[in-house]
């Protein structure tokens, strides 16, 4: 997907074009490349409690800086809970408590100085059920840039909206009805709108919580295609209950079982040569 160059790109760092191509792309790549193989997140002994019950029992894991990492496991295994650790969405649940260290680029995201609101701007999230705001398509995408002050002019905002929608592969379908409500779109379109909404904030990471579970197969295929393109620019974590999906879109896969991280490896290895019996049972369909 090639972005048209526009003259509203500002170079002062307030607004970085979302997924730019050409010169600006190089700039973005430069930022990323030196540490491409380093971990984006490093987790040590992460535990999550809901009230008194422990949902995650000490997870140690490193998430690669690029590519797609899939979290799989039977329902109730804690994979979604784990995903919500990375953007501190668990903070919004009363009684939920997270312990252990989660370092993002070496910085503890649960540190005292970290504002979860700003963290969430850096770590976007896409939910299981598409949740567009009951606003126009345009306002849905523009909402994030507006609250974070990413655009100083309307034309700049238009630019961000357009780029984000293009990047999410939705532009051609909605460009003539940007003023219509986002809730009027189909499920697959809504989910891509929500991704565009997340992209518009210029995150570094995108968390996806079973993003295809509410979609039909065709919309799912489109979404997977999109994830495949996005992985070039973003560190993506995806929770999925579909092993086929994990195999298709991810480079690395982590298998969770009853709140424990059982196995974490290249996707290839997990699916062809699982080392743990539980993993094997799960991927061969004996449990689940």
């Amino acid at each position: 997907m090639v972005m048209a160059e526009t003259n509203v790109v500002r170079a002062d760092g307030i607004f970085q074009p979302v997924l730019p191509k050409g010169d600006v792309v190089d700039m973005a790549k430069k930022r990323r490349e030196p540490d491409a193989e380093k971990a984006k997140f490093a987790c040590r002994d992460v535990r999550v409690f809901y009230g008194a019950s422990e949902a995650l029992h000490g997870i140690d894991m490193e998430i690669a800086n690029s590519g797609v990492t899939a979290l799989i496991g039977p329902s109730g295994c804690g994979k979604s809970t784990f995903l919500r650790v990375f953007n501190r969405m668990n903070d919004t649940i009363p009684n939920a408590r997270v312990t252990g260290d989660i370092l993002m680029d070496g910085e503890d995201i649960y540190g005292k100085k970290v504002d979860p609101v700003l963290l969430r701007a850096r770590v976007g999230m896409v939910f299981q059920k598409p949740n567009p705001f009951p606003k126009s398509i345009y306002d849905n995408v523009a909402y994030g840039p507006r609250i974070h002050g990413l655009a100083v002019s309307n034309s700049e905002l238009d630019y961000i909206v357009e780029k984000s929608l293009k990047r999410a592969g939705l532009w051609d379908e909605v460009k003539d009805r940007l003023k219509e409500s986002g809730t009027g779109l189909s499920g697959g379109q809504q989910q891509r709108l929500v991704i565009a909404r997340a992209i518009a904030v210029s995150p570094e990471v995108i968390l996806m919580d079973e993003p295809a579970s509410a979609l039909d197969p065709i919309a799912t295929a489109k979404l997977e295609e999109l994830i495949d393109e996005l992985k070039e620019k973003y560190c993506i974590l995806i929770v999925t209950h579909s092993m086929a999906q994990a195999a298709r879109v991810s480079q690395r896969t982590a298998f969770f079982h009853l709140g424990d991280l059982v196995e974490y490896d290249d996707t290839q290895s997990i699916f062809t040569n699982p080392k743990d019996q539980r993993t094997q049972d799960y991927i061969t369909g004996r449990t689940g």
């Binding site: 953007n87 969405m89 919004t92 609101v117 700003l118 963290l119 969430r120 701007a121 850096r122 976007g124 999230m125 939910f127 059920k129 949740n131 567009p132 705001f133 009951p134 606003k135 909402y143 994030g144 507006r146 609250i147 974070h148 929500v194 909404r197 997340a198 904030v201 968390l207």
Partner: peptide, 22 residues
């Protein structure tokens, strides 16, 4: 729906921003 709140928080909106805008 809670999903709307989650969606807004996940974009890095504060509670008051979520309240007034969403």
């Amino acid at each position: 729906p809670q999903t709307l709140r989650d969606g807004s928080y996940a974009l890095g909106a504060t509670k008051s921003e979520t309240m007034t805008n969403v």
